[in-house]
């Protein structure tokens, strides 16, 4: 990522001088600084994230296992989980297709407006969920939306049903895969692809056999981040879904409904499930990646 060869040349030609190394041979901050950094990092992460998250799990089981069982046998809850799964699945599929395409275009090609596209692609991250919802309502409202009125006449309802939920979810998670893929694509370089093409492989073949395997970890990581974000989206979906009980309530909307109906344990039970699914997905990919990389280094 960084460097021109310059520093390496210097390293090879310089006179070796003893360098402070740690007891296990590490280079870098020693002693007090190292411990200071370590503790600052640990305390910050613990207070900001770790402790609040354990509270989620704690609150879930505060009254024992019974409320948790009740939660996951409630048909309305199961329905909301199903809806979340559908929206997340669509979001992942659409964003992966879009993400891979755009990443390849941004890294491997030149075209007018490339820089603009690069900047715009990060935009959804900075849009407040209320604005996301507002924008979708403005476009698809059946009374005076740009598309809404004509679509309604054709019998196609977007707002307050699954299509709007899918749109909102896909919107917010859009930049995540691209962000992961672009650096990896740059890292991987074109040599192998060019070699394959020069040997007569077609683009689909090259893509499938060379590119995808080379970027698979970045891609997988981007996919699980996209999945996690899609599962957890709340604000935008709330505005566009109509919150129809049993029909357009996603899991996060269900959490809000339950919490406000004084059903705290159930709300936390669902939250724990959503958090666990995302965490497991992220861990799995990280572990697999670490194992594959250590194997390739040995």
């Amino acid at each position: 990522m960084c460097c021109s060869g310059g520093w390496r040349d210097v390293a090879e030609t310089s006179v070796a001088r003893p360098i402070a190394r740690g007891p296990r041979g590490q280079v870098g901050a020693q002693g007090a600084t190292k411990h200071l950094l370590r503790w600052v990092a640990i305390v910050y992460v613990a207070l900001l994230v770790a402790w609040p998250v354990t509270l989620v799990f704690w609150n879930t089981f505060a009254e024992g296992l019974q409320p948790v069982i009740e939660t996951f046998t409630d048909p309305l809850v199961l329905n909301s989980l199903r809806l979340t799964a559908i929206a997340a699945a669509w979001s992942v599929v659409l964003n992966t297709a879009f993400g891979v395409t755009v990443s390849m275009l941004l890294v491997r090609y030149e075209f007018p407006g490339k820089r603009l596209l690069n900047a715009l692609v990060d935009l959804p991250l900075s849009v407040s969920p209320i604005v996301v919802g507002l924008s979708i309502v403005l476009v698809y409202s059946t009374t005076n939306g740009w598309f809404g009125a004509p679509l309604a006449n054709a019998g196609f309802h977007v707002l307050f049903s699954t299509p709007a939920i899918v749109l909102a979810t896909t919107f917010v998670a859009m930049p995540l895969i691209i962000r992961e893929l672009v650096p990896v694509l740059q890292e991987v370089g074109v040599d192998q692809e060019q070699a394959a093409r020069s040997l007569g492989a077609s683009f689909p073949q090259t893509f499938r056999r060379i590119t995808i395997p080379a970027i698979r970890w970045g891609l997988l990581y981007g996919i699980v981040l996209c999945l996690a974000r899609s599962i957890g989206e709340f604000g935008a979906v709330k505005v566009v879904s109509g919150n129809l009980i049993g029909q357009t309530q996603t899991a996060t909307l269900m959490v809000e409904q339950l919490y406000f109906d004084f059903d705290q344990e159930k709300a936390f039970a669902i939250s724990s499930l959503l958090a666990v699914i995302s965490i497991i997905a992220i861990i799995t990919v990280s572990l697999l990646r670490a194992r594959a990389e250590s194997r390739s280094h040995s």
Partner: peptide, 28 residues
């Protein structure tokens, strides 16, 4: 690792379809 990744994807896909299938009757 590639096969394992494929496995993971397959499990996720099956789980999603399972969730979708099993509660298709709910909502009424």
């Amino acid at each position: 690792a590639k096969a394992r990744a494929g496995w993971l994807a397959g499990v996720v896909a099956v789980a999603t379809m399972g969730l979708a299938g099993c509660s298709s009757a709910v909502g009424e």
